[in-house]
Simulated assay, not measured.
Amino acid sequence: MAASRAAAVTLATLAERFDLVVQGSAAQTAIRGVCALEPGKPDCIAFAENAGQIESINRSAAAAVICPAAVAEAIESPVLVAKQPRLAFARVAALFERPSAPAGIHARAVVAETAQIDTQASIAANVIVGEHSVIAAGAVIGANTVIGEGVRIGADTRIASNCSIGDDVRMGERVSIEANAVIGGRGFGLVHNGRGWEAIPQMGSVHLGDDVEIGAGTTVDRGALDDTVIARGAKIDNQVHIAHNCRIGEHTVIAGCTGIAGSCTIGANCMIGGGVGIGDHVHIADGVIITAASQVPKNIDRGGVYSSTFRAMPATGWRKRLALFRQLDKIERRLRRVERAGLSSENNE
Rank of each mutant, 00 (worst) to 15 (best):
I128P: 06
V212N: 07
P102C: 03
M203V: 10
E149C: 11
D210Y: 10
P85Q: 05
F89K: 05
C67K: 02
A137I: 04
R59N: 15
A155P: 00
L11E: 01
T145W: 11
I242Y: 14
S60P: 04
I290H: 02
A26Y: 08
L225R: 10
Q295V: 14
A179Q: 14
L208K: 00
N162H: 12
V140L: 11
R340K: 15
R17L: 00
N348Q: 14
G262E: 00
C264N: 10
E49F: 03
A155T: 07
E113I: 03
R311D: 14
T228Q: 03
G223I: 10
R108T: 14
G138Y: 09
I66R: 01
A107M: 12
D226V: 06
K235P: 04
G233P: 03
A261L: 07
I230T: 02
G24W: 05
D286K: 00
F18V: 00
I200N: 08
G104I: 04
G217H: 01
G40Q: 09
G287A: 07
I260V: 13
K83T: 11
I75A: 01
Q28T: 08
R334Y: 14
T218S: 12
V288W: 09
N162M: 06
N162G: 00
A6S: 15
F89E: 05
A2V: 00
V146Q: 03
I123M: 06
R59A: 09
N238V: 02
G150V: 08
V338G: 07
D19W: 07
H281R: 09
A36F: 10
V182S: 14
I128A: 14
R321H: 13
L322C: 09
T13Q: 15
V81H: 04
V92W: 09
I214P: 08
T13G: 00
K41I: 15
